[in-house]
Amino acid sequence: MAEEKHHITSYKTYLLVLVALIIFTLLSVTITQIELSRWATVAALLIAGIKSTFVLLVFMHLKFDLRIFRVMVGLIISLLVVVIFITMLDFLFR
Protein backbone atom coordinates (compact mmCIF):
# COMPACT_ATOMS: atom_id res chain seq x y z
CA MET A 1 0.00 0.00 0.00
CA ALA A 2 2.63 2.47 -0.98
CA GLU A 3 1.51 6.05 -1.33
CA GLU A 4 0.33 6.43 -4.92
CA LYS A 5 1.05 9.57 -6.84
CA HIS A 6 -2.24 11.30 -7.54
CA HIS A 7 -2.90 12.38 -11.06
CA ILE A 8 -3.96 16.01 -11.27
CA THR A 9 -6.27 16.71 -14.17
CA SER A 10 -5.99 20.20 -15.60
CA TYR A 11 -8.90 22.63 -15.70
CA LYS A 12 -8.46 22.79 -19.44
CA THR A 13 -9.15 19.08 -19.86
CA TYR A 14 -12.33 19.40 -17.82
CA LEU A 15 -13.48 22.40 -19.80
CA LEU A 16 -12.81 20.69 -23.13
CA VAL A 17 -14.76 17.62 -22.01
CA LEU A 18 -17.58 19.83 -20.81
CA VAL A 19 -17.77 21.59 -24.17
CA ALA A 20 -17.77 18.22 -25.93
CA LEU A 21 -20.58 16.98 -23.66
CA ILE A 22 -22.71 20.04 -24.35
CA ILE A 23 -22.17 19.73 -28.09
CA PHE A 24 -23.18 16.09 -27.96
CA THR A 25 -26.30 17.01 -26.01
CA LEU A 26 -27.34 19.60 -28.57
CA LEU A 27 -26.51 17.15 -31.32
CA SER A 28 -28.79 14.48 -29.89
CA VAL A 29 -31.61 17.02 -29.53
CA THR A 30 -31.18 18.13 -33.14
CA ILE A 31 -31.04 14.60 -34.50
CA THR A 32 -34.24 13.59 -32.77
CA GLN A 33 -36.10 16.72 -33.89
CA ILE A 34 -35.64 15.96 -37.58
CA GLU A 35 -37.60 12.99 -38.86
CA LEU A 36 -35.37 9.95 -38.81
CA SER A 37 -37.94 8.06 -36.76
CA ARG A 38 -36.55 4.74 -35.65
CA TRP A 39 -32.87 5.56 -36.03
CA ALA A 40 -33.19 8.77 -34.05
CA THR A 41 -33.67 6.91 -30.78
CA VAL A 42 -30.76 4.62 -31.51
CA ALA A 43 -28.59 7.63 -32.30
CA ALA A 44 -29.70 9.43 -29.14
CA LEU A 45 -28.82 6.39 -27.03
CA LEU A 46 -25.52 6.01 -28.81
CA ILE A 47 -24.70 9.61 -28.04
CA ALA A 48 -25.73 9.04 -24.41
CA GLY A 49 -23.29 6.15 -24.40
CA ILE A 50 -20.48 8.34 -25.68
CA LYS A 51 -21.30 11.06 -23.18
CA SER A 52 -21.30 8.65 -20.26
CA THR A 53 -17.96 7.24 -21.40
CA PHE A 54 -16.53 10.75 -21.23
CA VAL A 55 -17.96 11.29 -17.76
CA LEU A 56 -16.66 7.93 -16.54
CA LEU A 57 -13.19 8.29 -17.98
CA VAL A 58 -12.41 11.93 -17.27
CA PHE A 59 -14.75 13.32 -14.62
CA MET A 60 -14.69 10.10 -12.61
CA HIS A 61 -10.96 9.66 -13.26
CA LEU A 62 -11.22 6.09 -14.49
CA LYS A 63 -8.67 6.87 -17.19
CA PHE A 64 -6.01 7.71 -14.63
CA ASP A 65 -7.02 5.26 -11.94
CA LEU A 66 -6.12 1.68 -11.09
CA ARG A 67 -7.05 -0.83 -13.75
CA ILE A 68 -9.29 -2.76 -11.38
CA PHE A 69 -11.81 0.08 -11.33
CA ARG A 70 -12.08 0.08 -15.11
CA VAL A 71 -12.51 -3.69 -15.14
CA MET A 72 -15.23 -3.57 -12.50
CA VAL A 73 -17.18 -0.79 -14.20
CA GLY A 74 -17.00 -2.67 -17.49
CA LEU A 75 -18.25 -5.87 -15.89
CA ILE A 76 -21.11 -4.18 -14.05
CA ILE A 77 -22.36 -2.44 -17.19
CA SER A 78 -22.18 -5.70 -19.17
CA LEU A 79 -24.08 -7.42 -16.37
CA LEU A 80 -26.90 -4.91 -16.64
CA VAL A 81 -26.99 -5.29 -20.42
CA VAL A 82 -27.15 -9.09 -20.15
CA VAL A 83 -29.96 -8.93 -17.59
CA ILE A 84 -31.98 -6.60 -19.82
CA PHE A 85 -31.32 -8.92 -22.75
CA ILE A 86 -32.46 -12.04 -20.90
CA THR A 87 -35.59 -10.30 -19.64
CA MET A 88 -36.39 -9.20 -23.18
CA LEU A 89 -36.09 -12.84 -24.33
CA ASP A 90 -39.42 -13.32 -22.64
CA PHE A 91 -41.19 -10.27 -24.03
CA LEU A 92 -39.74 -10.35 -27.55
CA PHE A 93 -40.87 -13.90 -28.21
CA ARG A 94 -44.12 -14.05 -26.30
Partner: peptide, 26 residues
Protein backbone atom coordinates in the same frame (compact mmCIF):
# COMPACT_ATOMS: atom_id res chain seq x y z
CA UNK B 1 -14.30 15.08 -1.62
CA UNK B 2 -13.41 12.76 -4.48
CA UNK B 3 -16.02 10.26 -3.26
CA UNK B 4 -18.62 13.01 -3.04
CA UNK B 5 -17.66 13.99 -6.57
CA UNK B 6 -18.03 10.40 -7.77
CA UNK B 7 -21.53 10.31 -6.32
CA UNK B 8 -22.37 13.55 -8.07
CA UNK B 9 -21.11 12.26 -11.42
CA UNK B 10 -23.31 9.20 -10.96
CA UNK B 11 -26.34 11.47 -10.66
CA UNK B 12 -25.22 13.14 -13.87
CA UNK B 13 -24.60 9.79 -15.55
CA UNK B 14 -28.13 8.60 -14.86
CA UNK B 15 -29.60 11.82 -16.19
CA UNK B 16 -27.59 11.41 -19.38
CA UNK B 17 -29.72 8.34 -20.06
CA UNK B 18 -33.02 9.59 -18.65
CA UNK B 19 -32.96 12.64 -20.90
CA UNK B 20 -33.04 10.91 -24.31
CA UNK B 21 -35.26 8.07 -23.06
CA UNK B 22 -38.03 10.43 -21.96
CA UNK B 23 -37.62 13.69 -23.87
CA UNK B 24 -36.15 12.66 -27.19
CA UNK B 25 -38.29 9.76 -28.39
CA UNK B 26 -41.10 11.91 -29.75
Amino acid sequence: LENGGLYWHLVDLIWIFLFPLFYLIA
